[in-house]
Amino acid sequence: MTSRDRFRSTALRALRDPDALSARLQAVRTEPSALPLNDGVDRLRGRLGEGESVPWFDPASGGIEARSLFLLEAPGQKSMGAGAALRRTGSGIISIDNGDPTARNCWMLRAEAGLPYWESLHWNIVPWYLGTADRIAAPGQTEIQRAAPFLHEVISMLPALEVVVPMGRKAQAGWATYQERYAPKVHTLPTWHPSPRVFASRPAARQEILDVLRRAAELLGAG
């Protein structure tokens, strides 16, 4: 049994539990499908010189075997580790099992759509934290362009990738920039950012995201 197999029964906000988080962080460097991606995180941290401003890939997700990739904008505070810049106290992992409302929405929508987490990957157009100690910031075009080569490194490690879901306008703009430069042969299914603020301002957004995720499940034969 791999470490990823042990995580298949995860629950909402599972990484708020210290024991669950400790096990997940250990698997960051031991789960074979996540290790090449997290080696890439190590290299990027070294290039940036900003410590843990780039969270880990989740070893409970698909890793290099992922068939779908869900892209948001940039890491939130709950994905930043306790040793990271700006003294973040989150999990240190990009995961739908994190304790924030956006992760919760992703977890519930995926479950409703019938999309297995261990066949996909969640990441960001810009993989490093943006903003200040008090407030996150949305990525601009300069940051998106700067991040494109690293995104290409990630996608180059996903030979089974079939579907990309950019979530939110910034992620969609970043993915469009990436497509123009690298022309990946995948299905692109853009949709809303799954944040509570979007759901509050656009009542139809949740259903529209669910419809997109169900389409992804159909394309992957998972629905």
Rank of each mutant, 00 (worst) to 15 (best):
G40S: 14
R43C: 14
L44W: 06
R45A: 06
R45T: 11
G49R: 02
G49W: 03
E50M: 14
G51H: 03
E52Y: 14
S53D: 11
V54A: 02
V54G: 04
V54D: 00
P55G: 10
D58Y: 05
P59F: 09
P59K: 02
A60Y: 09
G62E: 08
G62D: 09
G63Y: 12
G63V: 10
E65N: 12
R67E: 13
S68K: 01
F70S: 10
F70R: 03
F70W: 12
L71I: 08
L71K: 07
A74T: 13
P75V: 10
P75M: 06
G76P: 00
K78P: 06
K78E: 13
S79H: 08
G81T: 03
G81E: 05
G81K: 00
G83V: 11
A84G: 14
A84M: 08
A84F: 07
A85F: 13
L86I: 12
L86R: 02
L86W: 12
L86P: 13
R87A: 15
R87H: 14
R87Q: 15
R88C: 12
R88M: 09
R88A: 13
T89G: 12
G90Q: 06
G90T: 05
I93C: 06
I93F: 01
I93Y: 02
I93W: 07
I94W: 03
I94G: 08
S95F: 02
S95H: 04
S95N: 00
S95E: 01
I96V: 10
I96L: 03
I96F: 03
I96D: 03
I96A: 10
D97M: 07
N98A: 01
N98I: 07
G99M: 00
D100F: 05
D100V: 04
D100C: 04
P101K: 02
P101Q: 00
T102I: 01
A103D: 05
R104C: 11
N105L: 06
M108Y: 09
L109P: 05
R110S: 15
A111V: 06
E112I: 06
A113G: 11
G114D: 01
G114M: 00
P116K: 07
P116T: 03
P116E: 09
Y117A: 15
E119C: 11
E119M: 14
S120D: 15
L121C: 07
W123E: 14
N124Y: 04
N124F: 08
I125E: 07
P127T: 01
P127R: 05
P127Y: 11
Y129D: 01
Y129C: 05
L130F: 10
T132F: 04
T132Y: 11
D134N: 15
R135N: 09
R135Y: 09
R135V: 12
I136L: 10
I136E: 14
A137R: 06
A138R: 12
A138G: 11
G140W: 08
G140Y: 08
G140H: 04
G140P: 07
Q141V: 15
Q141M: 15
T142H: 14
E143G: 05
E143P: 13
A147D: 03
A147V: 06
P149D: 00
P149G: 04
F150D: 05
F150H: 05
L151K: 08
L151S: 09
L151G: 00
L151I: 03
H152G: 09
E153I: 04
E153D: 10
V154F: 06
V154S: 09
V154L: 08
I155K: 08
S156M: 05
S156L: 10
M157W: 04
M157Y: 02
P159E: 02
P159V: 00
